[in-house]
Design a binder for these strands. Structure first.
Lengths: 176, 176
DNA sequence: TGCTAAATGTTATGCTATAACATATCAATC
DNA sequence: GATTGATATGTTATAGCATAACATTTAGCA
């Protein structure tokens, strides 16, 4: 998990190439604006934590995040990472991937949304999709039984296109 | 979590009353049959572990399960519980609730299914529903991007009918 | 300035899960 | 019935994830 990621630009997002530097910067800018509008404090630790998650663009453990922050002198003890992650997830800037006990920067800032994730168990890359969770079958059952949904966890674990074993491009090096 | 559960019969399943003793026994019997048919070893530890999960009928931590097994002389070290849970989840007799790091007995034995859960964060009772996960929005996105789903986690956290704060029956004692 | 609330620093600890290796059990085959 | 191989269990130790609790600092505001 704490490995090098040579491709800082044009790496995978939602399993297809994109201008990654731009997406990180614009998302950070939007987060900044959102915090001003909502009187949230986007402190250096919180900002850098989000930046790290966005740069990696895959699920990162709290201790992986902490290791990076520690290297940069932003804090060494676990609560540093967990507080930053609490802030980011509360604000909707990041999500926890329950199936991996890991965290990922959010592609659709600010909205109070019900994200769904496709998680590659080989390369740990994550694609985020929006769902209307309260609409699907789960919502039907909830309404029928009188259950009030406050939060949903919707995750699919499997293999992304680049990590398919039977594929032509078996074991893509950029995906390991 | 390690609390007493006085109501062994007629407690909540899917948030409505049912003959709980019967559901435990019949599920155990079906598990037994399934193991014979599939040449799986339904050892005393595994059987009792499933029985405990079915009796509780709510999410139980691995160490909670271990505590019960330990009291009965069936093992004291964590691997005892985790091995039993591995067996039960592999066989489809139990599921892990990722959002709680806890486990629950399965209501629909044996089938290779994609369960969805409604989880009450107040009383930890869990209702299991079946979904065709590969059919919903997640399946659409997966097919569109060439992602191969091997396992899905679909959970809704919230309050069950009995634990609604605004309700007439605030804080039902059977649900705490 | 002084007050208050929020953020950060720090230590310690608890919960969740597995690695690794020894021993025992069971079933199939010779 | 003995051998063998696979599976299950016993046991110790440790790794990985997360938070409690309290001290200190910082930022915003009366």
């Amino acid at each position: 998990m704490t490995d090098k990621n040579p491709a800082r630009d044009m790496s995978t997002l939602g399993f297809h190439a994109h201008d990654h530097t731009h997406c990180v910067n614009s998302t950070l800018a939007r987060a900044e604006r959102y915090c001003v509008e909502n009187k949230l404090k986007f402190t250096p630790i919180r900002r850098r934590a989000l930046e790290i998650l966005l740069e990696e663009h895959r699920a990162l453990g709290a201790y992986d995040l902490l290791a990076v922050l520690a290297r940069e002198g932003l804090g060494t003890a676990p609560p540093v990472a967990y507080r930053a992650l609490d802030f980011l997830t509360s604000a909707g800037f990041a999500h926890k991937i329950e199936g991996l006990n890991a965290y990922i920067g959010c592609a659709h800032l600010g909205a109070d949304h019900a994200p769904a994730f496709l998680i590659c168990t080989a390369c740990k890359s994550v694609a985020e999709a929006e769902t209307d969770a309260t609409q699907g079958r789960l919502g039907d059952v909830a309404r029928a039984t009188g259950f009030t949904i406050s939060h949903t966890v919707i995750e699919a674990l499997g293999l992304c296109p680049k990590c398919q074993p039977d594929d032509n491009n078996a074991a893509d090096p950029s995906c390991a």
